[in-house]
């Protein structure tokens, strides 16, 4: 079973068990992020897009986290944050994500997600450039750009299933309670 099959099965399971619950949250996303009512997400083109886009999303998330961590180091008085290997790593991951985004397959239902992914990449590109010059100078611009990148990442996560900024299913308190509408698992006791 390949990734596309796994994704298709997961989405079908969600839709069958909980058809009334939207698959994504849209805390601040524009309304056009929601698919028209009755539209299914199971077409092959969308699934191909989701599977192809996940690595790019994960790289952007990773790069954003690393940049944020370096900004913390710099804000805490670290004088060598720019020389920290994690900075080069963050920028390299951002660049790799950019390449992947450019090569993503087209899918009508993936267009909105793609737009936010590109916007995230653009913001993080600018954040990396700003941080390369001003990381140790208490400049707010790198942080502002990082925040914009994170905001776009959240929008992308909301636009299609299969993308998580925070893996709640691996978190302390949500562990094992994932997909509550799929499996309540109420054993005796």
């Amino acid at each position: 079973m390949n990734n596309r099959d796994i994704t298709r099965l997961s989405v079908r399971r969600i839709e069958e068990r909980a058809p009334n619950i939207p698959l994504f949250c849209v805390p601040e996303a524009p309304t056009e992020s929601l698919l028209p009512a009755g539209e299914t997400l199971l077409d092959d083109a969308t699934l191909s897009y989701v599977v192809a886009a996940q690595p790019a999303f994960d790289l952007l998330r990773q790069a954003a986290g690393q940049l944020a961590a370096l900004l913390v180091l710099a804000a805490a008085g670290g004088r060598s944050a720019q020389d920290n290997p994690a900075f080069a790593l963050a920028c390299a991951e951002r660049a790799k994500a950019g390449d992947l985004i450019g090569a993503l397959p087209t899918a009508r239902k993936g267009r909105h997600h793609h737009r936010h992914l590109r916007a995230c990449n653009d913001a993080l590109t600018a954040a990396c450039a700003e941080a390369a010059v001003n990381l140790n100078r208490d400049d707010q611009r790198a942080l502002a750009l990082l925040r914009e990148g994170l905001r776009q990442l959240h929008f992308a996560a909301a636009a299609l299933p299969g993308f998580e900024v925070v893996a709640f299913g691996q978190s302390c308190c949500a562990a094992h309670a994932s997909m509550a509408t799929i499996s309540r698992g109420k054993a005796n006791g």
């Binding site: 994960d58 998330r61 990773q62 954003a64 986290g65 690393q66 944020a68 961590a69 370096l70 900004l71 913390v72 180091l73 804000a75 805490a76 290997p85 994690a86 790593l89 942080l143 990082l146 925040r147 994170l150 900024v165 925070v166 893996a167 709640f168 691996q170 978190s171 302390c172």
Partner: peptide, 29 residues
Amino acid sequence: IWALALDRKFRWLQAATDPGDIARIVDLA
């Protein structure tokens, strides 16, 4: 910060961290 710099194979170590929380800590600092 160390976990965020690890290879993607180790992503479980920081998957439940919100990069946004780290960004908020920057402001605090």
